[in-house]
Simulated assay, not measured.
Amino acid sequence: MTARTSAQALADVASALVEDHEITGLLARLVSDCAALVPADAAALLVRTADGGFELLSATSHRVDELELYHAQRESGPAVEAARTGAPASAVGGEAIVARWGDVGTEIVEAGFQAVHAFPMHWRGHAIGGLNLFSVTAAELSEPSFVLAQSFADFATLAIVQPAALGDEDLAQRVTEALEGRVVVEQAKGVLAFQLGLDMADAYDELVARSSVNGSTLAQVAQNVVRAAQER
């Protein structure tokens, strides 16, 4: 049997998201694929609750299940930190893990793990939880593995927050908003082409470049260009 690739695993999640999916099974498959492909020896998802605490959502094994429940009870640990700070949290080596997370770190080491990496589950400017990856060897993640793990965390977030279904009116509204955004982009391309003496292809590249530099969305940059031209 051909081994699954990261592209196949993420494509499977994406396919499930556009269908009527069962979230528990989807998340279980997601953490399993993540552990296999990053790679790590175990993975788990912790999420924030309405009262500000944390709960285990999915784990690859019973051992990690118990470990994460302890983290949730203590409201401490790598995934908790990632959720609170909105940034990845890592420690490699038993001493570093204990030094960073105290009793929770001791539990991680005693469970047999020598490296842990946690990734925030971002949603609309804040983190709703964290993805934990545990390894029995004391090893840093490579840059490609780091990026892949964050992608799995992002897909887990989408699986949780995506509504089960949209009514026809809601779907039509979202399509309309997408089309309106495209119209603004086309207008902005025309403005830049005129102002800077560019062809339309180069004007679009200029919009994309400004978006990357400013950290804004393409639609936001386009709106700013059009607004500035109207105010002249």
Rank of each mutant, 00 (worst) to 15 (best):
E140W: 09
R74A: 15
A11Y: 11
H126I: 01
K189I: 15
Q150M: 07
G52L: 12
A89H: 08
A83K: 02
V64Y: 01
A9G: 03
V147H: 11
H122Q: 14
V147E: 13
V175W: 10
D202T: 12
L158V: 03
E19S: 15
A149L: 00
P78H: 03
F146Y: 13
L158R: 11
E177F: 02
L37G: 03
G93D: 08
A50N: 10
R84W: 05
V184W: 01
G112Y: 11
N214E: 15
E75G: 11
A72S: 15
V104I: 06
D170A: 15
V183A: 13
S142G: 14
V18E: 11
S15V: 05
S90W: 11
L171A: 14
R174D: 08
L46Q: 04
A96M: 06
S6Q: 09
F134N: 00
A7C: 00
G102S: 10
Q162V: 00
S6T: 08
S135H: 12
W123K: 00
A59C: 12
A153Y: 02
A127S: 15
R210K: 13
D199I: 07
V226M: 07
G93V: 06
E66W: 07
S61N: 10
R63E: 15
R48W: 00
Y70K: 03
H21D: 08
A72Q: 11
T85R: 10
L179N: 12
H71M: 12
G77E: 05
V225M: 05
W123H: 13
R29Q: 14
G102Q: 07
E180G: 10
A219M: 06
A96C: 04
V183D: 12
I23W: 01
A72K: 07
E140A: 14
E68R: 05
P163K: 06
T106F: 01
Y70G: 02
R227W: 01
T85L: 08
S90A: 15
A14N: 10
V109S: 01
A229W: 09
F54I: 08
E66Y: 05
A188R: 01
V161H: 09
A14R: 12
E206K: 12
A79S: 15
A87R: 15
T176V: 07
L45W: 02
G215H: 09
L133G: 01
A219G: 06
A164V: 09
V175R: 14
A111L: 03
A99P: 05
E231Y: 05
N214K: 14
G125Y: 06
K189T: 13
S6D: 14
V80N: 01
R182H: 14
H62W: 08
G125K: 03
A28M: 09
T137M: 04
V104N: 00
N132Q: 08
A91F: 02
V185L: 10
G105H: 03
E19F: 06
D199S: 06
V92R: 05
H71W: 02
E169L: 14
Q173H: 11
T5Y: 02
V221Q: 04
R227V: 09
L67V: 00
I160W: 01
A3F: 05
L26A: 09
A111K: 03
G53W: 06
V213N: 01
A82C: 08
E180Y: 03
A127H: 00
L56D: 06
A16E: 13
G53T: 14
G197Q: 05
A159C: 03
S76N: 13
V98D: 00
D199Y: 06
V98E: 10
H117M: 07
R232V: 12
D65W: 11
